[in-house]
Computed example of a mutant assay.
Amino acid sequence: MRRLNAALTFRLLREADAPLTMAQLTRGTELSRRTVELILADLLADGWVREVAVGSTGVGRPPRAFAFQPDNALFAAVQVDTHSVRAGVADTHGRLLSSERRVLSDYYDPATTLEQAVDALNAALVASGRPVGVVRAGAVAMPGLIDDEGLVLGLVDAPTWTGVRPSAVLAQAFPFPFVGDNDANLAAVGERWKGAAQGLDSFTWLLAGARNGAGIVIRGEVHRGFRSSAGEIVRAPAVGMSELHEHPLGGLTHPDPQERARAERIVERVRSGDRDAADLLDEFTAPLARVLVTLVWTIAPPLVVLGGGLEVAADVLVPRLETALAAEGAPAVPIRATSLGGDAVLLGALHEARASVDDELLRAKS
Rank of each mutant, 00 (worst) to 15 (best):
R3W: 09
R3L: 12
L4P: 01
F10H: 09
R11M: 10
R14K: 11
A16E: 09
A18D: 12
P19C: 04
L20M: 11
M22I: 13
Q24K: 08
L25V: 00
L25N: 00
T29W: 03
E30L: 12
V36I: 14
V36H: 10
I39S: 03
D42L: 05
D42T: 11
L43I: 08
D46M: 01
V54E: 01
V54A: 02
T57K: 07
G58Y: 00
V59D: 10
F66Q: 04
F68K: 05
P70C: 07
N72M: 12
L74A: 10
A76N: 04
A76L: 05
R86L: 13
R86E: 11
A87D: 07
D91M: 07
T92A: 13
G94Y: 02
S98I: 02
Y107D: 06
Y107G: 10
Y108H: 13
A111V: 14
A111T: 14
T113S: 12
T113G: 03
L114M: 12
N122K: 14
N122T: 14
V134L: 13
A139K: 08
M142P: 08
G144K: 00
D147S: 09
G150K: 08
P159S: 14
G163R: 01
V164P: 05
S167K: 07
A171W: 11
Q172N: 10
A173E: 12
D181N: 11
D181E: 15
N182I: 03
D183K: 06
N185W: 05
A188H: 02
L207A: 07
L207K: 11
G215V: 04
R219S: 08
R224L: 13
R224P: 05
G225L: 05
S228D: 08
S228T: 03
V234Q: 03
A236G: 11
A238T: 14
L244K: 05
E246H: 15
E246K: 15
H247G: 06
H254L: 01
D256I: 09
P257G: 04
Q258M: 12
R262E: 13
I266C: 06
I266V: 15
R269F: 05
R269E: 13
D276E: 14
A278L: 10
D279T: 15
D282F: 05
E283S: 13
F284Y: 14
A286E: 15
L288T: 04
A289I: 07
A289C: 03
R290N: 10
R290P: 01
V291D: 05
V293H: 10
P302M: 07
L306T: 02
G309E: 00
L310Y: 01
E311L: 09
A314S: 13
D315Y: 08
D315C: 07
V316N: 00
R320V: 03
L325M: 12
L325R: 06
A326Y: 06
A330T: 08
A330L: 10
I335Q: 01
I335P: 00
I335E: 02
I335L: 09
R336F: 09
A337W: 09
T338W: 04
G342D: 03
D343S: 14
L346W: 00
L346D: 01
G348N: 04
L350W: 02
H351W: 08
A355R: 15
D358Y: 10
E360W: 11
R363L: 14
S366G: 01
